[in-house]
Each structure stands twice: as C-alpha cells, then as structure tokens.
Write a protein that binds this DNA or RNA. Sequence first.
DNA 1: TAAACAATGTTATTATTTTAACAATTATAC
DNA 2: GTATAATTGTTAAAATAATAACATTGTTTA
Lengths: 213, 213
Amino acid sequence: MSTLPEKTIERLSMYRRVLQTYQDNQSEFIYSHELASLLHLTPVQVRRDIMLIGYSGTQRKGYSVKELINKIGDILDGNERINAVIIGMGHLGKAITNYFNTKRSKIDIVAAFENDSTKVDRIISGIKSYHTDSLEMILEESNVTIAILSLSPREAQDVTDRLVFAGIKGILNFTSVPLTVPEDVSLENYDMVTSMEKLAYFVKEKIRDENSL
Amino acid sequence: MSTLPEKTIERLSMYRRVLQTYQDNQSEFIYSHELASLLHLTPVQVRRDIMLIGYSGTQRKGYSVKELINKIGDILDGNERINAVIIGMGHLGKAITNYFNTKRSKIDIVAAFENDSTKVDRIISGIKSYHTDSLEMILEESNVTIAILSLSPREAQDVTDRLVFAGIKGILNFTSVPLTVPEDVSLENYDMVTSMEKLAYFVKEKIRDENSL
DNA sequence: TAAACAATGTTATTATTTTAACAATTATAC
DNA sequence: GTATAATTGTTAAAATAATAACATTGTTTA
C-alpha cells in the first residue's frame, strides 16, 4: 500500500481512539454513520478512509470494531514499538509524559532530558531524567527514533541539530520556534499560539457574520 | 474582505511571530524569500498570503516589517482585546498560561478554573483561579469569548455544555475527547496523541522508503 | 538615460482533500 | 421467496490549497 493521505492518518488515529472506548462498553459492530457521528465527520469520509486502508466491513452490519482497530494498528504502529525521548521537563514536558504514559500506545517515552540540575538523575512522571549533556550518550545505547521538544525556544535549534546528528528520524516540536531539519527527518509542529490566534480570528468572523445578517 | 483561507490564517500568525523577532534586531524591510526561508515556506506562498490580506510591498525593496506586522494585527486581532478563560490547571494548564502570559498578544487569559480545592482562590501562573462551580458566575460578569480546555477527559463535555450555555463563542480543546458544540461556536482541537501517531507513521514510511531504494 | 536585473502581484495550473452520487450487496419484513 | 430498506465500496465532481508562470515595476548600473 502506498503512503496514505496525511488527513487520513490523522483521522485513523482518532478512529482508533473512539473505537477503543466503543469496544469497551458496546457492540461488536459499528456503522460508518455511527463512527462518523462520534467524531463529527461525515459517513462518506469514514468509509473512504477505511477503503483506503484496505479494510472491508459487511454491508448491512457495518465494520467489526475489533478487526478495524487491529487494521488501524497495522497501519499506524507497524510491527515493532517506537521509542521516543522528551527534552524539557517543565510543566509542558510533564503534561506530555503523563498523557502518554496513561494511554495504551506503541510509542514509549524512554528518557527525559533537562538542564535544571534539580531535575536530573531522577524519575519524573515515571520517566528517567538525564542531563541534556548526556543526550548523545543515551541515544547511542538505545534505539530511539522520535524526539519531543518541550524546552525553551532559545535552545530549540541547538538541541535539534544534536538530535539529528545522533540519528533521530522524527521531531515533535512544541516550541514556537520554526526548526530547520534535513529532508530525511520528519517534523511535526504543534503550535499553541497559532491555534489560539486562528480560533480568535474565526470567532471574530462568526460574530461579524451574525451581526451583518 | 471576505473570510481568508484557514491555512493563510495559520501562516499569518507565524509570519507575525518571526517578523517581531526580525524587527527587534534587523532591517526595516524584508523580502518574501527571506520571510519564506525563516519559516521554510516558498516565497510565492508568502507573497500570495500577503496579497490576500491586501497589503503591498515595494518592488525591489520588499515589505515594510512594521507595516506588515500592523496589517497582520488588523486581521488577526481586530480592534479590541479578547478575553479567555482556562479550565484545568494541571501541568498542561500551567504550561499554556505561562506560554501566553509571556507573549505579546491581544488575547488575555483572565481567569482559571479548577476542581481541586488546593488550587482554588489562589493566583496560579499569574492568573486568578476559581472553583469550576463558579464558572457561570464569573463568566456573567466578564466579557469572555474563548475558553481553553485542559481538564480531564471525563469532565470535558459537561464543562463544554456549561461554557456554551454561558455564551462562550470559541473553544480550544486540549483534551483527546471529541466535543459536541452548536454550529455558532468555533472549535479548535489540539490533539497530542494524533500528532504523535502521525509523526510515527511518517517516520516509519520514510525509513521504509529509504530501505526500498 | 536606457538596459539589465530582481523583486512584487496576480492569474493559471496542478495537487490534495472533501463531498456527492450511485451501484452492489445483504439483512429484514411480508 | 421476493420486495424493500439500509448499508457498504467506489468512482466522479467540487472545493480548497499549493505551486508555477509570468507580466509589471522599481532599482541599479553602465
């Protein structure tokens, strides 16, 4: 199967999440319109996404929840688990690790890095924390492909360069700094300020539209 | 001017941010290709966005940084400041408020809400914190249009309903729960798990592609 | 002052994403 | 057992977004 559309990947992640809670307390099968309504999407979009991943339901019965979860897992997780590290254990770093530790996921955060000496060589939010200086050393002895950046903007690009040099293949950037990475490294930006300003804009637009009716 | 494309709005927010740091330590003018390279976009996209907001640079000189910042401000901020509240002051809530308090922004977080009695009626991260029970009371006496949700998934929909009923017009949802809101309320989801799984997928794809060469 | 150059502004094209349309199929009711 | 209704799977169309193409214009330089 060739690479799936980005938006489909996003939705697959959401499908799985709601399917897992659905599975826990309800029926064995689910209709496209049910899954759609749980996520406020259209049934067509759900069916099309499921078509793209090569899974088939049965007409009139819908999709087997269990099989669909497994199929999405095949796509998103692959076979082996993925190791990640997090750099920066302020409030945001702790929030992220708490979040992930509680979820059933194939992605494990295996180490945290900090400059603040009071946070180094301790277990924070269930994760062993090291000084950022030992980044290369730890990465060398463990199979880590993804890094989560929740540190100060000032250090972001420096640490990124070191991560890339150490062989990291994907970066989830929570800082507001636009990072430069080589072509073969995936970068996903997660920008609170932009989300907020975007929301504010559309709120204002909506209010404006309503007033102009 | 009619409503701008969603993607343009996102980029405008990013333009402004890099322009502000650019302004602080560099020249009066900026070329489209400079602005583009700061954000790893194409010059065409930058020029097209700027065209859409109705601003013009001068050929051969580029865009006036100051004027462009102001013009983006007109679009994103409008005239008046926007008030927001945040619900849930765990690590994530604190991270978000710290983030916003330090930025120059037209969006003010004016109150926080918590259920944990040890966090109520105090100043946390510079923001007055109230018990969630007094949500309606506080909202009634202040002009708040946006709410940020960084609370437990379990309470998310309940609180959302109360916020909507109290007249909130936009919700920034940091929980992983898909929320139901009426048509006239804007909703922006900010989903860490999905971002992470998406990144993991594309990392795997890239590794797969490289191996198959 | 005129030619060359380098930048903007805008229209046209292409790519991606969503939505619509509808045929195929299966369970159910009569 | 046949008709009916409801659902899936897939192709086609529409909407949105990104990229390319290029005309225009201001600046520099000879």
